[in-house]
C-alpha cells in the first residue's frame, strides 16, 4: 500500500470553519459573468419596455414622495428641490434593496439548480450584485439628468468634485452590506422559513430609518444618535453631499459603515459556508 497518494479533493462531512475557498470562487469567474449576462438578457427580453421599467418605477416613487412629504407633510428637503432630493436617496436605496433581496433568496430561489450541480454557492449573490449595477446606472443617469436640469434652474447647489472618486466606493460599501446581510438571512431562511415575513417588515423599517424621505439634519437630536447606528445613512448623506452640497459628510461615520460592511460580510460568508453544505436536506 502506498501512503503517498495525492488526492486532489477530499469530501468530508464538514468543512473546517476557516476554510473559505475564495480561490474557488475566482475559478468560477466565467460562471459569474455568464449569470450576469443571463440576468440582463432575460430582463431585456421578457418585457416590451425592458429596462425602461427601471426608470418608470423610481420616477413614480419620487413624484409621489414629492407630493406627499414635500407638498402635503411639508418635510424638509434640506433646501433641495423635492425630486432631486428624493431621487438621490431612492437610487441608492433601490440598489441596496435589490442586492439584499437577491442575496437573501439565494438558497430558496436557486434550490432547483443547487440540488443538481455543485459550484460555489456564493457565485449567485455575487453575480446579482453585478447585474443590479445595470439598473443602478440607469437610475443614476436619470439622477444626473435631474441634476443638470436643477443646476441650470437654481444656484444654491454645490458640486463637490474633489470627492467624486468616493461614489464608486459608496456603491461598493452598499453592495458589501447588502450581500453580507443578505447571505446571513439566506442561510437562516433556508432553515426557518418564517423569517422571510420578519425580513419584509424589517426592510420597511430600515427604509424609514434611512434618510431617504427626510434629511438627517431635520431629525431631533435625541433620535439622531439612533439613526447614526444605521450604516446606510452616512452613505446616502455623503452621496447627496457630493452631488448637491447638502447633507452630512463625516469621515468617521463612513468608516463606521465600512467596518460594519466588512464585519457583516465576513460573518455572512462563514454562516453561508456552513449552510451551503447541507441546506439541500432542509429546504
Amino acid at each position: 500500500m502506498k501512503n503517498n497518494e495525492t488526492w486532489s479533493m477530499i469530501i468530508t462531512p464538514k468543512n473546517k470553519w476557516y476554510k473559505l475557498n475564495l480561490k474557488e470562487i475566482w475559478d468560477y469567474k466565467d460562471l459569474i459573468l455568464i449569470f450576469v449576462k443571463r440576468d440582463i438578457i432575460s430582463i431585456y427580453k421578457q418585457t416590451i419596455l425592458g429596462p425602461v421599467w427601471f426608470l418608470l418605477g423610481p420616477l413614480f416613487t419620487v413624484f409621489t414622495y414629492t407630493f406627499l412629504f414635500s407638498g402635503v407633510a411639508k418635510l424638509s428637503t434640506d433646501g433641495l428641490p423635492g425630486p432631486l432630493f428624493y431621487l438621490g436617496g431612492t437610487t441608492l436605496w433601490n440598489y441596496f434593496q435589490a442586492c439584499f433581496n437577491g442575496a437573501s433568496n439565494t438558497f430558496i430561489s436557486n434550490s432547483p439548480i443547487f440540488g443538481k450541480v455543485y459550484f460555489p454557492r456564493l457565485v449567485m449573490p455575487i453575480s446579482l450584485l453585478i447585474s443590479n449595477l445595470l439598473k443602478l446606472s440607469l437610475q443614476f443617469i436619470t439622477y444626473l439628468v435631474f441634476l443638470i436640469y436643477y443646476y441650470q434652474k437654481t444656484n444654491n447647489l454645490k458640486f463637490h468634485f474633489e470627492l467624486l472618486y468616493l461614489v464608486p466606493f459608496i456603491i461598493l460599501i452598499l453592495a458589501i452590506i447588502a450581500m453580507g446581510l443578505g447571505i446571513i438571512v439566506s442561510s437562516l431562511t433556508s432553515k426557518y422559513r418564517d423569517l422571510t415575513m420578519l425580513i419584509g417588515v424589517g426592510m420597511t423599517l430600515l427604509m424609514f430609518a434611512t434618510p431617504i424621505m427626510y434629511p438627517i439634519n431635520a431629525v431631533p437630536d435625541i433620535y439622531k444618535s439612533y439613526l447614526h447606528l444605521n450604516p446606510i445613512s452616512p452613505l446616502i448623506e455623503a452621496f447627496r453631499y457630493i452631488f448637491t452640497g447638502t447633507g452630512l459628510f463625516n469621515w468617521s461615520q463612513i468608516l463606521y459603515s465600512v467596518l460594519f460592511g466588512f464585519i457583516v460580510l465576513i460573518l455572512g460568508i462563514f454562516i453561508f459556508n456552513k449552510t451551503e453544505r447541507t441546506f439541500m436536506d432542509t429546504i
Binding site: 486532489s8 469530501i11 462531512p13 432575460s42 450541480v117
Partner: peptide, 29 residues
C-alpha cells in the same frame, strides 16, 4: 450537492455531475 453525515470521499481530478440534463437552461436565451 449535499455533504455526507460521516465518512470521507477521496478523489483525483475533477468530478462533473449530470443529475439532470439542461440544469439552469434559461428559456429566453
Amino acid at each position: 450537492v449535499t455533504a455526507p453525515t460521516t465518512g470521507k470521499i477521496k478523489v483525483k481530478g475533477r468530478i462533473a455531475s449530470l443529475l439532470e440534463v439542461g440544469t439552469g437552461f434559461h428559456p429566453e436565451l
